[in-house]
Amino acid sequence: MSTTTTTVTTNLTPSDIEIATRAADTFTRIYYTAYDADTRLADLPQFYRPTSSLTWNGKPFQGAEGLVQLVTQMPATKHEVQSFDCHPIPGTSPPSLLITVSGNVTHGLGPAGNPSDLPTRCIEGQPRVFSQTFLLVPDPTAPPTKPGEVAKYYVGADAVRFVG
């Protein structure tokens, strides 16, 4: 097959895939740990830049500032990542990474925060299923801080929905 599109067709090597997988593993862990921490207002904006595009359940926010605005008013969270996947995006170098995450998230006090006089089968306060997509892109202006560092990556785009 020889489709020529606007992208440069580059072959991904096993090493590219391995580095991307490792990066996604690290990112998902440190990102949700930061999100669930008491210090999230200081920690989470580090992952974003002014150009980052975010949507939270269909509502757009712009850049690290928009994120702060969103998260300031967010109840406490506890995320549990149940599944994630990551692709290096062909045609970019060093490659952008597309990460998709599926898991559940508990807000506020969870079921324990519900009043005691609830009907059975009440789902409020229970963990929701969330789906989150990140596009991670390299920041060419960020100086490397580790000897083998390919680049520093930040969240170029972030789209999250509650889906269950």
């Binding site: 090493s15 440190i30 920690d43 960020a142 580790k146 083998g148 520093k152 990556y153």
Partner: peptide
């Protein structure tokens, strides 16, 4: 003694 090739993030302090 060889650096590990990796993508890094501005990890929270």
């Amino acid at each position: 003694q060889d650096p590990i090739t990796q993508i890094s993030f501005d990890a929270p302090q």
